[in-house]
Amino acid sequence: MRLPALGVRFLILATFGIFFAVPILWLILAPTRTDKALIMGHPIAFGSFHQVALAWKHLDAFSGHIYRRWIANTLYYALSATAITLVVSVPAGYGLAIGKFPGRKLVLSLTLVVMIMPAAALVLPIFLELNAMHLIGRSLSVILPFAFFPFGVYLAYIYYVTALPPDLLDAARVDGAGELQTFLRVALPLAKPVLALIFFFSFVADWNNFFLPYVLLADSNQYPITVGLSDLLASTPSFNPSVGGGGQSVNIFKPELALATLLAVVPIAIVFVFSQRALVRGLVGGAVKE
């Protein structure tokens, strides 16, 4: 009775696995092939390593090694903002979960409302605020809005509500610990899974955020990789006919774009793998499902 169930389970997972994986496989193979082979050859095939080196050469040469700067910028923005997010969101989620202060529900509701507000409408006021703070054109103009991560607050809130037994906290309080001690000694260590989750989602959200940096940053040297990639795309004739004649000399074609995209995904894949371990840890009771 176990075996067929196992088989069905695997079949379903594998089917979805193929759906998710095949386009990625294509993306991984794309830099190894020439532009012509991508269009006229078989969809999934390996080209050559030499082509990858060539693609990297072109990509790196684009606009004065700006690709490297884009990756560096994104790492800087994402890591800084995520650090702030962790320090701010986890205690906030905790406070909302165990708290009884007036306005608790208000903060929760407002957080939700703000998450549901379309970004297109918020861009202008945020721009004006940052301008009033004289931050336009500086990294903080990107890092500070990134650090506002209501999703993280909610993740922490739900985690603490569902997974933290109040007896544990009471036990600490009876021992004479103050609120801060209780948090640091009891609640925080238990929050490893949600810390990992928030770190992960915040980092990825910041890494992938396009709209805000696109609007706020004027200098292409400050772009994160998302805005940079769309610039790259716009320099490719096959994606942007308006580039007209001359697109060829910029040397960015599909293999280069594929490589640029792939390299931009690597940090996220790394963060994912590292967050996984912490995500998998069990809970109160200590059992670890590996």
Binding site: V88, S89, P91, G95, G99, V114, M117, L124, F148
Partner: peptide, 28 residues
């Protein structure tokens, strides 16, 4: 005291909520 329990933990979050969430939403 218990009526304020939890509030200090939420305080650092509030400026962010206001500046990047509530104020722009109200403006919009």
């Amino acid at each position: 005291l218990r009526n304020l329990q939890g509030m200090p933990f939420v305080l650092p979050y509030l400026p962010f909520l206001v500046v990047f969430g509530i104020a722009p939403t109200v403006y919009a």
